[in-house]
């Protein structure tokens, strides 16, 4: 039995006058679990915000059976890719429209993650956050392949260049992860889960520490991170969803 104990979120553009190209899905009860997601429209191409909205809209149509395995993560991404491709039928200038998408479904036994692009999923682990997804950026790929060391790339461009996104013209490349609750919950059966777009984790990674009491409270975490982003000025559109679940029934807690 999964109980949502708390959640907090924000999603705002880099500058107030600009359009926010991120779209978010707040915790949505689907069957016995909860679905959350962030899609970050790829800014260099027309139709970025429509693409991220199309991704989130599709997720809202999913039923519990779909998320429990009737539809694979690949099929979910394929369906969204079709919707993003169809945007160019309404507006031909959208033929390169692209979005990233990272979603988490907290089901009966663990968290299912589908991930394309450079949003990140983190879990609280002790007094730290541990990143579960890999960024599909040029830099990360070059490091993974041993072509550069992280220090060699610091001064080089390409941080904002993705090698994977959901777009008509790009072959689908995604991460499909399942993380069992045993590996991420506290002994009290508490799970703290975060999805951040690159604008938000840019600020988090400047100094990836908050008090543990802040990490375990979604509202405090969101308020503190929001304050930090504003203080350092946003580098991009910024989105966060922070949730806290209990995965044990109240009776179990007395065992």
């Amino acid at each position: 039995m999964i109980k949502l104990l708390g959640s907090s979120a924000f999603s705002f553009p880099k500058e107030p006058a600009r359009k926010n190209e991120d779209s978010i899905l707040l915790p949505r009860k689907v069957g016995e679990g909860f679905l959350i997601a962030i899609a970050d429209g790829v800014g260099s191409y027309a139709g970025a915000s429509s693409a991220s909205e199309a991704a989130i809209d599709y997720l809202t149509t999913l039923r519990s059976s779909d998320l429990e395995g009737v539809i694979s993560v690949e099929e979910i991404f394929e369906q969204i890719k079709q919707r993003v491709s169809d945007l160019s039928i309404q507006d031909t200038s959208y033929f390169e429209a692209a979005t990233t998408l990272t979603f988490c479904y907290a089901g009966k036994k663990g968290i299912n993650i589908g991930h394309v692009g450079d949003c990140r999923v983190y879990f609280k682990h002790g007094d730290k956050l541990r990143q579960a997804t890999k960024d599909h950026t040029q830099h990360q790929k070059l490091i993974d392949e041993g072509l550069y060391k992280p220090s060699e790339l610091k001064q080089m461009s390409g941080k904002n260049t993705l090698f994977s996104a959901i777009s008509k013209n790009i072959n689908l490349y995604f991460q499909d992860l399942f993380i069992p609750y045993e590996s991420i919950s506290t002994k009290d059966g508490i799970v703290n889960l975060f999805i951040m777009s690159d604008g938000a984790y840019h600020a988090w990674e400047l100094r990836p520490r908050f008090l543990e009491s802040t990490l375990e409270d979604p509202n405090r975490f969101a308020a503190n991170l929001h304050r930090r982003i504003i203080r350092f000025q946003p580098t991009d559109d910024c989105s966060l969803i922070s949730v806290k679940f209990s995965i044990k029934s109240q009776l179990d807690l007395f065992d």
């Binding site: 392949e145 260049t161 993705l162």
Partner: peptide, 22 residues
């Protein structure tokens, strides 16, 4: 943010091009 794609001819592509479009 943009998306990198490998273009060109495979035989003459450096590894960072074929792997990450860099």
């Amino acid at each position: 943010t943009k998306i990198a794609t490998a273009m060109g001819t495979a035989k003459y592509m450096a590894p960072e091009v074929s792997i990450a479009g860099d």
